[in-house]
Design a protein around this nucleic acid. Structure first.
Lengths: 283, 283
DNA sequence: CGATGTCTTGACGACCTTCAAGAGTCGTGG
DNA sequence: CCACGACTCTTGAAGGTCGTCAAGACATCG
Protein backbone atom coordinates (compact mmCIF):
# COMPACT_ATOMS: atom_id res chain seq x y z
CA UNK A 1 0.00 0.00 0.00
CA UNK A 2 2.95 2.26 0.43
CA UNK A 3 5.48 2.72 -2.28
CA UNK A 4 5.15 0.88 -5.53
CA UNK A 5 2.54 -1.58 -4.37
CA UNK A 6 2.22 -3.65 -7.50
CA UNK A 7 -1.11 -5.03 -8.53
CA UNK A 8 -2.82 -8.03 -7.12
CA UNK A 9 -3.66 -9.28 -10.59
CA UNK A 10 -2.16 -12.69 -10.13
CA UNK A 11 1.10 -11.32 -11.51
CA UNK A 12 2.39 -14.20 -13.61
CA UNK A 13 5.96 -13.40 -12.73
CA UNK A 14 7.05 -11.66 -15.84
CA UNK A 15 9.90 -13.32 -17.56
CA UNK A 16 12.86 -11.01 -18.12
CA UNK A 17 12.15 -9.07 -21.24
CA UNK A 18 14.79 -9.83 -23.84
CA UNK A 19 18.15 -11.37 -23.23
CA UNK A 20 21.13 -9.14 -23.75
CA UNK A 21 21.18 -6.54 -21.02
CA UNK A 22 23.87 -4.23 -22.31
CA UNK A 23 23.00 -3.87 -25.93
CA UNK A 24 22.35 -0.14 -25.79
CA UNK A 25 19.54 -0.62 -28.23
CA UNK A 26 16.94 -3.27 -27.74
CA UNK A 27 13.33 -3.80 -28.59
CA UNK A 28 10.27 -5.19 -26.95
CA UNK A 29 7.04 -6.48 -28.41
CA UNK A 30 3.60 -5.39 -27.28
CA UNK A 31 3.19 -8.66 -25.45
CA UNK A 32 6.38 -8.02 -23.52
CA UNK A 33 5.20 -4.60 -22.51
CA UNK A 34 1.83 -5.88 -21.37
CA UNK A 35 3.42 -8.51 -19.24
CA UNK A 36 5.73 -5.93 -17.67
CA UNK A 37 2.71 -3.75 -16.97
CA UNK A 38 0.93 -6.59 -15.26
CA UNK A 39 -1.76 -6.55 -17.90
CA UNK A 40 -3.02 -9.66 -19.61
CA UNK A 41 -2.84 -9.09 -23.34
CA UNK A 42 -5.49 -10.51 -25.63
CA UNK A 43 -4.66 -12.90 -28.40
CA UNK A 44 -4.95 -10.13 -30.93
CA UNK A 45 -2.47 -8.01 -29.06
CA UNK A 46 -0.14 -10.91 -28.44
CA UNK A 47 0.09 -11.63 -32.10
CA UNK A 48 0.75 -8.02 -33.00
CA UNK A 49 4.13 -7.67 -34.59
CA UNK A 50 3.66 -4.22 -35.97
CA UNK A 51 4.38 -2.36 -32.76
CA UNK A 52 7.74 -2.57 -31.11
CA UNK A 53 9.13 -0.48 -28.30
CA UNK A 54 12.61 0.87 -27.94
CA UNK A 55 14.69 0.35 -24.84
CA UNK A 56 17.05 2.94 -23.43
CA UNK A 57 19.74 2.55 -20.80
CA UNK A 58 20.56 5.05 -18.10
CA UNK A 59 23.39 5.11 -15.63
CA UNK A 60 23.07 6.15 -12.01
CA UNK A 61 22.56 9.87 -11.74
CA UNK A 62 21.21 10.35 -15.24
CA UNK A 63 17.85 11.97 -15.81
CA UNK A 64 15.14 10.43 -17.98
CA UNK A 65 13.33 13.74 -18.21
CA UNK A 66 13.16 16.99 -16.32
CA UNK A 67 10.44 19.32 -15.15
CA UNK A 68 8.99 21.47 -17.86
CA UNK A 69 10.37 19.38 -20.68
CA UNK A 70 7.81 18.76 -23.44
CA UNK A 71 5.95 15.55 -22.81
CA UNK A 72 6.00 12.95 -25.52
CA UNK A 73 6.52 9.55 -23.99
CA UNK A 74 5.89 7.35 -20.99
CA UNK A 75 8.67 5.22 -19.60
CA UNK A 76 8.25 1.68 -18.36
CA UNK A 77 10.95 0.39 -16.05
CA UNK A 78 12.37 -2.97 -17.07
CA UNK A 79 15.22 -3.10 -14.60
CA UNK A 80 17.01 -0.82 -12.19
CA UNK A 81 15.99 1.68 -9.54
CA UNK A 82 15.03 5.30 -9.85
CA UNK A 83 13.47 8.20 -8.03
CA UNK A 84 11.05 10.87 -9.17
CA UNK A 85 11.20 14.31 -7.64
CA UNK A 86 9.29 17.55 -7.64
CA UNK A 87 10.87 20.93 -7.02
CA UNK A 88 8.77 23.01 -4.66
CA UNK A 89 8.61 26.77 -4.93
CA UNK A 90 11.43 27.13 -2.44
CA UNK A 91 13.69 25.19 -4.75
CA UNK A 92 13.86 22.01 -2.70
CA UNK A 93 13.71 18.56 -4.08
CA UNK A 94 10.83 16.47 -2.88
CA UNK A 95 10.96 12.76 -3.62
CA UNK A 96 7.65 11.45 -4.94
CA UNK A 97 8.35 7.81 -5.61
CA UNK A 98 11.01 5.16 -6.04
CA UNK A 99 9.98 3.42 -9.26
CA UNK A 100 11.29 0.01 -10.15
CA UNK A 101 10.50 -2.86 -12.50
CA UNK A 102 6.99 -2.60 -13.87
CA UNK A 103 6.39 1.01 -12.91
CA UNK A 104 5.38 3.70 -15.34
CA UNK A 105 7.02 7.10 -15.36
CA UNK A 106 5.91 10.38 -16.83
CA UNK A 107 2.17 10.04 -16.36
CA UNK A 108 1.92 13.48 -14.82
CA UNK A 109 3.08 15.02 -18.07
CA UNK A 110 -0.02 14.09 -20.04
CA UNK A 111 -2.26 16.83 -18.79
CA UNK A 112 -0.28 19.94 -19.66
CA UNK A 113 1.94 18.25 -22.24
CA UNK A 114 5.03 18.77 -20.17
CA UNK A 115 6.53 16.69 -17.41
CA UNK A 116 5.65 17.95 -13.96
CA UNK A 117 8.32 15.90 -12.21
CA UNK A 118 11.81 14.68 -12.80
CA UNK A 119 13.02 11.08 -13.00
CA UNK A 120 16.56 10.19 -11.96
CA UNK A 121 18.25 6.80 -12.16
CA UNK A 122 19.59 5.56 -8.81
CA UNK A 123 21.33 2.64 -10.46
CA UNK A 124 21.88 1.42 -13.99
CA UNK A 125 18.46 1.17 -15.55
CA UNK A 126 16.82 -0.29 -18.57
CA UNK A 127 13.57 1.38 -19.52
CA UNK A 128 11.09 0.91 -22.34
CA UNK A 129 10.08 4.07 -24.14
CA UNK A 130 6.41 4.25 -25.00
CA UNK A 131 5.65 7.26 -27.18
CA UNK A 132 2.38 8.63 -25.91
CA UNK A 133 0.86 8.62 -29.37
CA UNK A 134 1.47 4.91 -29.58
CA UNK A 135 0.15 4.39 -26.07
CA UNK A 136 -3.14 6.08 -26.74
CA UNK A 137 -3.56 4.56 -30.16
CA UNK A 138 -3.32 1.12 -28.58
CA UNK A 139 -6.64 1.75 -26.91
CA UNK A 140 -8.23 2.21 -30.29
CA UNK A 141 -6.45 -0.64 -31.98
CA UNK A 142 -7.11 -3.14 -29.21
CA UNK A 143 -10.26 -2.00 -27.40
CA UNK A 144 -9.86 -4.82 -24.89
CA UNK A 145 -6.64 -3.17 -23.82
CA UNK A 146 -8.15 0.22 -23.27
CA UNK A 147 -9.44 -0.46 -19.80
CA UNK A 148 -6.02 -1.68 -18.77
CA UNK A 149 -4.41 1.49 -20.01
CA UNK A 150 -6.71 3.66 -17.96
CA UNK A 151 -6.10 1.19 -15.18
CA UNK A 152 -2.41 1.98 -15.26
CA UNK A 153 -3.13 5.61 -14.51
CA UNK A 154 -5.77 4.74 -11.95
CA UNK A 155 -3.30 2.54 -10.13
CA UNK A 156 -0.88 5.42 -9.82
CA UNK A 157 -3.61 7.56 -8.35
CA UNK A 158 -4.60 5.00 -5.75
CA UNK A 159 -1.02 4.75 -4.69
CA UNK A 160 -0.80 8.49 -4.23
CA UNK A 161 -3.91 8.42 -2.11
CA UNK A 162 -2.38 5.84 0.14
CA UNK A 163 0.76 7.92 0.37
CA UNK A 164 -1.09 11.09 1.27
CA UNK A 165 -3.04 9.19 3.87
CA UNK A 166 0.10 7.75 5.40
CA UNK A 167 1.83 11.11 5.49
CA UNK A 168 -1.12 12.65 7.20
CA UNK A 169 -1.89 10.09 9.82
CA UNK A 170 1.13 7.97 10.69
CA UNK A 171 4.01 8.63 13.03
CA UNK A 172 7.54 8.77 11.68
CA UNK A 173 8.22 5.29 13.03
CA UNK A 174 5.17 3.84 11.37
CA UNK A 175 6.04 5.43 8.05
CA UNK A 176 9.56 4.05 8.09
CA UNK A 177 8.22 0.64 9.10
CA UNK A 178 5.78 0.51 6.25
CA UNK A 179 8.32 1.82 3.84
CA UNK A 180 10.60 -1.10 4.64
CA UNK A 181 7.79 -3.61 4.31
CA UNK A 182 6.71 -2.10 1.00
CA UNK A 183 10.25 -2.33 -0.31
CA UNK A 184 10.47 -5.89 0.88
CA UNK A 185 7.31 -6.91 -0.91
CA UNK A 186 8.49 -5.21 -4.00
CA UNK A 187 11.78 -7.03 -4.00
CA UNK A 188 10.08 -10.33 -3.32
CA UNK A 189 7.81 -9.80 -6.30
CA UNK A 190 10.89 -9.37 -8.45
CA UNK A 191 12.45 -12.57 -7.23
CA UNK A 192 14.96 -10.99 -4.87
CA UNK A 193 15.06 -11.67 -1.18
CA UNK A 194 12.40 -9.87 0.75
CA UNK A 195 14.24 -10.28 4.01
CA UNK A 196 17.70 -9.06 3.14
CA UNK A 197 18.20 -6.24 0.71
CA UNK A 198 19.99 -3.04 -0.02
CA UNK A 199 18.43 0.35 0.13
CA UNK A 200 19.17 2.01 -3.16
CA UNK A 201 18.62 5.52 -1.85
CA UNK A 202 20.13 7.82 0.76
CA UNK A 203 18.58 8.62 4.13
CA UNK A 204 17.97 12.07 2.79
CA UNK A 205 15.91 10.70 -0.08
CA UNK A 206 13.96 8.38 2.18
CA UNK A 207 13.27 11.26 4.51
CA UNK A 208 12.08 13.48 1.71
CA UNK A 209 9.82 10.73 0.45
CA UNK A 210 8.38 10.05 3.89
CA UNK A 211 8.09 13.65 4.95
CA UNK A 212 10.76 13.74 7.66
CA UNK A 213 14.41 14.64 8.07
CA UNK A 214 17.31 12.36 7.34
CA UNK A 215 18.22 12.40 11.01
CA UNK A 216 14.86 11.04 11.98
CA UNK A 217 15.17 8.30 9.39
CA UNK A 218 18.57 7.37 10.71
CA UNK A 219 17.44 7.40 14.33
CA UNK A 220 14.37 5.33 13.55
CA UNK A 221 16.37 2.70 11.73
CA UNK A 222 18.81 2.55 14.62
CA UNK A 223 15.94 2.14 17.04
CA UNK A 224 14.39 -0.66 14.98
CA UNK A 225 17.75 -2.36 14.98
CA UNK A 226 18.11 -1.96 18.73
CA UNK A 227 14.76 -3.57 19.48
CA UNK A 228 15.27 -6.32 16.97
CA UNK A 229 12.78 -5.46 14.27
CA UNK A 230 15.57 -5.22 11.72
CA UNK A 231 19.32 -5.28 11.34
CA UNK A 232 20.88 -2.32 9.58
CA UNK A 233 24.33 -1.53 8.48
CA UNK A 234 24.58 1.36 6.12
CA UNK A 235 22.30 0.56 3.25
CA UNK A 236 21.96 -3.15 3.84
CA UNK A 237 18.88 -4.13 5.78
CA UNK A 238 17.54 -7.39 7.17
CA UNK A 239 13.93 -7.52 8.23
CA UNK A 240 13.28 -9.60 11.31
CA UNK A 241 9.76 -8.73 12.37
CA UNK A 242 7.68 -7.71 9.40
CA UNK A 243 4.47 -7.89 11.38
CA UNK A 244 5.68 -5.36 13.89
CA UNK A 245 6.97 -3.07 11.16
CA UNK A 246 3.72 -2.96 9.31
CA UNK A 247 1.27 -2.71 12.17
CA UNK A 248 2.63 0.41 13.81
CA UNK A 249 0.25 3.28 14.00
CA UNK A 250 -0.50 6.26 16.07
CA UNK A 251 -3.33 8.51 16.99
CA UNK A 252 -6.01 6.74 18.98
CA UNK A 253 -8.34 7.88 16.24
CA UNK A 254 -9.52 11.24 17.60
CA UNK A 255 -12.87 10.05 16.38
CA UNK A 256 -13.07 6.69 18.08
CA UNK A 257 -12.09 8.69 21.13
CA UNK A 258 -15.74 9.33 21.82
CA UNK A 259 -17.11 5.81 21.65
CA UNK A 260 -15.31 2.46 21.49
CA UNK A 261 -13.25 0.67 24.11
CA UNK A 262 -12.86 3.31 26.75
CA UNK A 263 -10.16 1.32 28.50
CA UNK A 264 -6.71 0.51 27.21
CA UNK A 265 -5.41 3.87 26.12
CA UNK A 266 -1.85 3.61 25.03
CA UNK A 267 -2.36 0.12 23.75
CA UNK A 268 -2.97 1.37 20.27
CA UNK A 269 0.68 1.75 19.51
CA UNK A 270 0.86 -1.99 19.21
CA UNK A 271 4.38 -3.20 19.51
CA UNK A 272 5.38 -6.81 19.72
CA UNK A 273 7.41 -6.51 22.86
CA UNK A 274 6.34 -4.77 25.99
CA UNK A 275 9.74 -3.23 26.18
CA UNK A 276 9.70 -1.90 22.67
CA UNK A 277 8.09 1.37 23.48
CA UNK A 278 10.62 2.24 26.11
CA UNK A 279 13.52 1.35 23.91
CA UNK A 280 12.21 3.57 21.18
CA UNK A 281 11.62 6.36 23.63
CA UNK A 282 15.09 6.00 25.03
CA UNK A 283 16.75 7.00 21.78
CA UNK B 1 -1.64 23.67 -6.45
CA UNK B 2 -3.41 22.58 -3.34
CA UNK B 3 -6.92 21.32 -3.41
CA UNK B 4 -8.81 21.24 -6.65
CA UNK B 5 -6.47 23.44 -8.62
CA UNK B 6 -8.40 23.67 -11.84
CA UNK B 7 -6.57 23.68 -15.12
CA UNK B 8 -4.90 26.63 -16.69
CA UNK B 9 -6.52 25.86 -20.02
CA UNK B 10 -7.99 29.30 -20.48
CA UNK B 11 -11.13 28.06 -18.78
CA UNK B 12 -13.89 29.75 -20.79
CA UNK B 13 -16.08 30.10 -17.74
CA UNK B 14 -18.44 27.28 -18.33
CA UNK B 15 -21.99 28.36 -18.60
CA UNK B 16 -24.28 26.63 -16.14
CA UNK B 17 -25.17 23.31 -17.68
CA UNK B 18 -28.92 23.13 -18.22
CA UNK B 19 -31.49 25.33 -16.62
CA UNK B 20 -33.81 23.65 -14.19
CA UNK B 21 -31.85 22.80 -11.06
CA UNK B 22 -34.35 20.69 -9.20
CA UNK B 23 -35.65 18.40 -11.87
CA UNK B 24 -34.40 15.20 -10.33
CA UNK B 25 -33.69 13.91 -13.79
CA UNK B 26 -31.81 15.99 -16.29
CA UNK B 27 -29.53 15.40 -19.20
CA UNK B 28 -26.35 16.87 -20.58
CA UNK B 29 -24.86 16.71 -24.03
CA UNK B 30 -21.29 15.74 -24.75
CA UNK B 31 -20.46 19.36 -25.39
CA UNK B 32 -21.78 20.29 -21.96
CA UNK B 33 -19.65 17.66 -20.32
CA UNK B 34 -16.53 18.72 -22.17
CA UNK B 35 -17.04 22.29 -21.12
CA UNK B 36 -17.50 21.24 -17.50
CA UNK B 37 -14.32 19.20 -17.74
CA UNK B 38 -12.41 22.18 -19.04
CA UNK B 39 -11.78 20.39 -22.30
CA UNK B 40 -12.29 22.01 -25.68
CA UNK B 41 -14.52 19.76 -27.72
CA UNK B 42 -13.97 19.38 -31.42
CA UNK B 43 -16.62 20.22 -33.94
CA UNK B 44 -17.41 16.56 -34.38
CA UNK B 45 -17.94 16.11 -30.69
CA UNK B 46 -19.93 19.29 -30.39
CA UNK B 47 -22.36 18.13 -32.99
CA UNK B 48 -22.77 14.71 -31.41
CA UNK B 49 -26.33 14.22 -30.33
CA UNK B 50 -26.17 10.51 -29.82
CA UNK B 51 -24.55 10.62 -26.39
CA UNK B 52 -26.32 12.17 -23.46
CA UNK B 53 -25.45 11.98 -19.80
CA UNK B 54 -27.77 11.59 -16.90
CA UNK B 55 -27.72 13.91 -13.91
CA UNK B 56 -28.33 12.78 -10.36
CA UNK B 57 -29.02 14.87 -7.28
CA UNK B 58 -27.69 14.19 -3.82
CA UNK B 59 -28.49 15.84 -0.54
CA UNK B 60 -25.96 16.65 2.16
CA UNK B 61 -24.76 13.52 3.86
CA UNK B 62 -25.62 11.16 1.02
CA UNK B 63 -23.00 8.93 -0.51
CA UNK B 64 -22.35 8.72 -4.25
CA UNK B 65 -20.47 5.47 -3.85
CA UNK B 66 -18.69 3.57 -1.11
CA UNK B 67 -15.44 1.70 -0.80
CA UNK B 68 -15.49 -1.72 -2.37
CA UNK B 69 -18.57 -1.07 -4.42
CA UNK B 70 -18.25 -2.33 -8.01
CA UNK B 71 -16.96 0.41 -10.25
CA UNK B 72 -19.02 1.31 -13.25
CA UNK B 73 -19.14 5.05 -13.62
CA UNK B 74 -17.27 8.29 -13.12
CA UNK B 75 -19.05 11.27 -11.63
CA UNK B 76 -18.60 14.83 -12.78
CA UNK B 77 -19.65 17.53 -10.34
CA UNK B 78 -21.96 20.13 -11.83
CA UNK B 79 -22.81 21.95 -8.62
CA UNK B 80 -22.44 21.50 -4.90
CA UNK B 81 -19.66 20.47 -2.55
CA UNK B 82 -18.44 17.05 -1.53
CA UNK B 83 -15.64 15.21 0.17
CA UNK B 84 -13.93 11.97 -0.68
CA UNK B 85 -12.55 9.79 2.09
CA UNK B 86 -10.49 6.68 2.55
CA UNK B 87 -10.80 4.39 5.53
CA UNK B 88 -7.42 3.37 6.85
CA UNK B 89 -6.80 0.01 8.44
CA UNK B 90 -7.53 1.41 11.89
CA UNK B 91 -10.99 2.34 10.72
CA UNK B 92 -10.47 6.07 10.61
CA UNK B 93 -11.75 8.33 7.94
CA UNK B 94 -9.12 10.22 6.02
CA UNK B 95 -10.30 13.05 3.81
CA UNK B 96 -8.65 12.94 0.38
CA UNK B 97 -10.24 15.85 -1.42
CA UNK B 98 -13.07 18.35 -1.46
CA UNK B 99 -14.41 18.10 -4.99
CA UNK B 100 -16.57 20.80 -6.48
CA UNK B 101 -17.79 21.96 -9.86
CA UNK B 102 -15.75 20.48 -12.67
CA UNK B 103 -14.08 17.76 -10.64
CA UNK B 104 -14.23 14.11 -11.50
CA UNK B 105 -14.95 11.45 -8.89
CA UNK B 106 -14.35 7.74 -8.89
CA UNK B 107 -11.17 7.62 -10.94
CA UNK B 108 -9.48 5.40 -8.40
CA UNK B 109 -12.02 2.69 -9.11
CA UNK B 110 -10.86 1.98 -12.62
CA UNK B 111 -7.88 -0.13 -11.76
CA UNK B 112 -9.43 -2.88 -9.66
CA UNK B 113 -12.97 -2.30 -10.87
CA UNK B 114 -14.15 -1.21 -7.49
CA UNK B 115 -14.10 2.17 -5.83
CA UNK B 116 -11.17 2.64 -3.48
CA UNK B 117 -12.64 5.70 -1.80
CA UNK B 118 -15.96 7.05 -0.75
CA UNK B 119 -17.67 10.24 -1.93
CA UNK B 120 -20.03 12.11 0.37
CA UNK B 121 -22.08 15.19 -0.43
CA UNK B 122 -21.44 18.12 1.93
CA UNK B 123 -24.28 20.10 0.43
CA UNK B 124 -26.96 19.54 -2.15
CA UNK B 125 -25.21 18.38 -5.26
CA UNK B 126 -25.89 17.88 -8.90
CA UNK B 127 -23.57 15.42 -10.60
CA UNK B 128 -23.31 14.03 -14.10
CA UNK B 129 -23.01 10.27 -14.31
CA UNK B 130 -20.54 9.08 -16.91
CA UNK B 131 -20.68 5.31 -17.33
CA UNK B 132 -17.11 4.20 -17.72
CA UNK B 133 -17.90 2.26 -20.86
CA UNK B 134 -19.16 5.44 -22.46
CA UNK B 135 -16.16 7.37 -21.19
CA UNK B 136 -13.64 5.02 -22.71
CA UNK B 137 -15.55 4.60 -25.92
CA UNK B 138 -15.39 8.34 -26.44
CA UNK B 139 -11.68 8.05 -27.01
CA UNK B 140 -12.31 5.73 -29.90
CA UNK B 141 -15.21 7.66 -31.33
CA UNK B 142 -13.50 11.03 -31.14
CA UNK B 143 -9.74 10.42 -31.23
CA UNK B 144 -9.10 14.12 -30.77
CA UNK B 145 -10.74 13.79 -27.37
CA UNK B 146 -8.62 10.90 -26.23
CA UNK B 147 -5.71 12.97 -25.05
CA UNK B 148 -8.04 15.08 -22.99
CA UNK B 149 -9.51 12.04 -21.33
CA UNK B 150 -6.13 10.77 -20.27
CA UNK B 151 -5.42 14.34 -19.30
CA UNK B 152 -8.28 14.26 -16.81
CA UNK B 153 -6.62 11.40 -14.97
CA UNK B 154 -3.20 12.95 -15.27
CA UNK B 155 -4.50 16.15 -13.73
CA UNK B 156 -5.73 14.26 -10.70
CA UNK B 157 -2.35 12.70 -10.30
CA UNK B 158 -0.49 15.98 -10.43
CA UNK B 159 -2.79 17.34 -7.77
CA UNK B 160 -2.04 14.40 -5.51
CA UNK B 161 1.66 14.95 -5.99
CA UNK B 162 1.31 18.53 -4.89
CA UNK B 163 -0.69 17.40 -1.90
CA UNK B 164 1.85 14.82 -0.83
CA UNK B 165 4.56 17.39 -1.22
CA UNK B 166 2.70 19.90 0.91
CA UNK B 167 1.96 17.37 3.62
CA UNK B 168 5.56 16.38 3.78
CA UNK B 169 7.26 19.72 3.79
CA UNK B 170 5.01 22.48 5.07
CA UNK B 171 4.18 23.57 8.58
CA UNK B 172 0.62 23.39 9.83
CA UNK B 173 0.24 27.13 9.38
CA UNK B 174 1.45 27.03 5.83
CA UNK B 175 -0.89 24.20 4.94
CA UNK B 176 -3.90 26.01 6.34
CA UNK B 177 -2.84 29.18 4.56
CA UNK B 178 -2.57 27.47 1.22
CA UNK B 179 -5.76 25.61 1.78
CA UNK B 180 -7.62 28.88 2.18
CA UNK B 181 -6.03 30.38 -0.89
CA UNK B 182 -6.82 27.29 -2.93
CA UNK B 183 -10.44 27.45 -1.84
CA UNK B 184 -10.55 31.11 -2.67
CA UNK B 185 -9.24 30.55 -6.18
CA UNK B 186 -11.70 27.78 -6.68
CA UNK B 187 -14.62 29.91 -5.63
CA UNK B 188 -13.45 32.77 -7.81
CA UNK B 189 -13.28 30.46 -10.81
CA UNK B 190 -16.90 29.58 -10.20
CA UNK B 191 -17.99 33.17 -10.06
CA UNK B 192 -18.34 33.39 -6.30
CA UNK B 193 -16.41 35.83 -4.19
CA UNK B 194 -12.86 34.76 -3.58
CA UNK B 195 -12.50 37.04 -0.60
CA UNK B 196 -15.54 36.15 1.43
CA UNK B 197 -16.85 32.64 1.51
CA UNK B 198 -18.14 29.85 3.66
CA UNK B 199 -16.22 26.75 4.54
CA UNK B 200 -18.42 23.85 3.64
CA UNK B 201 -16.61 21.41 5.89
CA UNK B 202 -15.89 20.97 9.59
CA UNK B 203 -12.57 21.68 11.27
CA UNK B 204 -12.27 17.97 11.73
CA UNK B 205 -12.52 17.38 7.99
CA UNK B 206 -10.08 20.14 7.20
CA UNK B 207 -7.67 18.70 9.71
CA UNK B 208 -7.97 15.24 8.28
CA UNK B 209 -7.38 16.59 4.81
CA UNK B 210 -4.35 18.61 5.87
CA UNK B 211 -2.88 16.01 8.16
CA UNK B 212 -3.40 17.72 11.51
CA UNK B 213 -5.90 17.76 14.35
CA UNK B 214 -9.05 19.84 14.43
CA UNK B 215 -7.64 21.76 17.37
CA UNK B 216 -4.62 22.84 15.37
CA UNK B 217 -6.87 23.96 12.53
CA UNK B 218 -8.96 25.99 14.92
CA UNK B 219 -5.97 27.54 16.61
CA UNK B 220 -4.33 28.40 13.32
CA UNK B 221 -7.44 30.09 12.01
CA UNK B 222 -7.74 32.06 15.23
CA UNK B 223 -4.12 33.11 14.93
CA UNK B 224 -4.57 34.22 11.32
CA UNK B 225 -7.54 36.24 12.44
CA UNK B 226 -5.59 37.82 15.27
CA UNK B 227 -2.76 38.98 13.03
CA UNK B 228 -5.11 40.19 10.36
CA UNK B 229 -4.55 37.71 7.57
CA UNK B 230 -8.19 36.72 7.66
CA UNK B 231 -11.41 37.24 9.57
CA UNK B 232 -13.14 34.09 10.77
CA UNK B 233 -16.40 33.46 12.45
CA UNK B 234 -17.46 29.89 12.49
CA UNK B 235 -17.44 28.78 8.91
CA UNK B 236 -17.48 32.17 7.27
CA UNK B 237 -14.09 33.44 6.25
CA UNK B 238 -12.80 36.67 4.79
CA UNK B 239 -9.33 36.69 3.30
CA UNK B 240 -7.40 39.86 3.92
CA UNK B 241 -3.82 39.05 2.98
CA UNK B 242 -3.70 36.36 0.34
CA UNK B 243 -0.04 36.94 -0.31
CA UNK B 244 0.90 36.24 3.27
CA UNK B 245 -1.30 33.17 3.35
CA UNK B 246 0.24 31.60 0.32
CA UNK B 247 3.88 32.38 0.88
CA UNK B 248 4.33 30.75 4.25
CA UNK B 249 6.84 27.98 4.41
CA UNK B 250 9.19 26.33 6.78
CA UNK B 251 12.31 24.30 6.90
CA UNK B 252 15.38 26.22 5.79
CA UNK B 253 15.77 23.42 3.29
CA UNK B 254 18.19 21.09 5.11
CA UNK B 255 19.88 20.95 1.74
CA UNK B 256 20.36 24.61 1.03
CA UNK B 257 21.69 24.63 4.56
CA UNK B 258 25.11 23.78 3.21
CA UNK B 259 25.46 26.59 0.69
CA UNK B 260 23.32 29.69 0.16
CA UNK B 261 22.98 32.82 2.24
CA UNK B 262 24.55 31.81 5.49
CA UNK B 263 23.06 34.79 7.30
CA UNK B 264 19.41 35.44 8.04
CA UNK B 265 18.30 32.26 9.69
CA UNK B 266 14.74 32.57 10.82
CA UNK B 267 13.92 34.84 7.96
CA UNK B 268 12.66 31.98 5.90
CA UNK B 269 9.32 31.93 7.59
CA UNK B 270 8.44 34.97 5.60
CA UNK B 271 5.60 36.84 7.15
CA UNK B 272 4.35 40.18 6.01
CA UNK B 273 4.57 41.85 9.37
CA UNK B 274 7.52 41.75 11.64
CA UNK B 275 5.21 41.14 14.52
CA UNK B 276 3.39 38.27 12.94
CA UNK B 277 5.72 35.61 14.16
CA UNK B 278 5.36 36.64 17.74
CA UNK B 279 1.64 36.82 17.57
CA UNK B 280 1.47 33.34 16.15
CA UNK B 281 3.86 32.08 18.76
CA UNK B 282 1.84 33.70 21.52
CA UNK B 283 -1.16 31.53 20.86
C1' DC C 1 45.41 12.35 1.01
C1' DG C 2 42.39 16.10 1.49
C1' DA C 3 37.70 16.81 -0.27
C1' DT C 4 33.14 15.59 -0.43
C1' DG C 5 29.09 13.16 0.71
C1' DT C 6 26.73 9.82 3.73
C1' DC C 7 25.46 8.26 8.16
C1' DT C 8 25.15 8.29 13.25
C1' DT C 9 24.34 10.32 17.69
C1' DG C 10 23.56 13.90 21.15
C1' DA C 11 21.34 18.10 23.11
C1' DC C 12 17.81 21.35 22.90
C1' DG C 13 13.59 23.35 21.93
C1' DA C 14 9.55 24.31 18.98
C1' DC C 15 5.58 22.61 17.04
C1' DC C 16 1.77 20.09 17.37
C1' DT C 17 -0.92 16.45 19.54
C1' DT C 18 -3.34 15.09 23.56
C1' DC C 19 -6.57 15.80 27.19
C1' DA C 20 -10.04 18.73 29.23
C1' DA C 21 -13.47 22.12 29.86
C1' DG C 22 -16.74 25.32 28.26
C1' DA C 23 -19.42 28.11 24.92
C1' DG C 24 -22.39 28.08 20.71
C1' DT C 25 -25.49 26.08 17.46
C1' DC C 26 -29.02 23.16 15.72
C1' DG C 27 -32.73 19.84 15.62
C1' DT C 28 -36.04 17.10 18.21
C1' DG C 29 -39.43 16.26 21.42
C1' DG C 30 -41.81 17.11 25.61
C1' DC D 1 -41.53 27.42 23.70
C1' DC D 2 -37.85 25.80 26.01
C1' DA D 3 -35.07 21.99 27.35
C1' DC D 4 -32.10 18.51 26.06
C1' DG D 5 -28.67 16.06 23.57
C1' DA D 6 -25.46 15.87 19.84
C1' DC D 7 -22.14 18.43 17.38
C1' DT D 8 -19.01 21.90 16.38
C1' DC D 9 -15.75 25.13 17.70
C1' DT D 10 -12.56 27.55 20.85
C1' DT D 11 -9.01 27.86 24.23
C1' DG D 12 -5.85 26.34 27.86
C1' DA D 13 -2.19 23.37 29.82
C1' DA D 14 1.13 19.74 29.49
C1' DG D 15 4.00 16.67 27.28
C1' DG D 16 5.96 14.06 23.34
C1' DT D 17 7.62 13.82 18.72
C1' DC D 18 10.44 15.41 15.63
C1' DG D 19 13.19 19.24 13.56
C1' DT D 20 17.40 21.92 14.28
C1' DC D 21 22.20 22.43 14.98
C1' DA D 22 26.61 20.39 15.74
C1' DA D 23 30.28 17.12 15.88
C1' DG D 24 32.45 13.07 14.57
C1' DA D 25 33.06 8.48 12.05
C1' DC D 26 33.35 6.32 7.59
C1' DA D 27 33.59 5.62 2.82
C1' DT D 28 34.52 7.04 -1.90
C1' DC D 29 37.08 9.51 -5.26
C1' DG D 30 39.93 12.35 -8.02
Amino acid sequence: MFAQSRIATSAPFNKPVAGRQRAGQLWSSLADVCSLLGVTPTVAATAADDVVFQHVQFKAGQRLFTIGQPFDALYLVNSGFLKTVMIDDAGNEQVLSFPMKGDVLGVDGIHLKQYMSEAVALSSCDVVVIPFKVFSSLGRKYPELELSLYGVLSRELTREHAMASALGSLSAEARVGRFLVALSERYSAMGYSGKEFNLRMTRQEIGSYLGMTLETVSRTLSAFDRIGYIAVEGRSVTLKDMQALKTMRRLPPSQSRSKEVPSAKKLFTNFSFEAAEDVLAAV
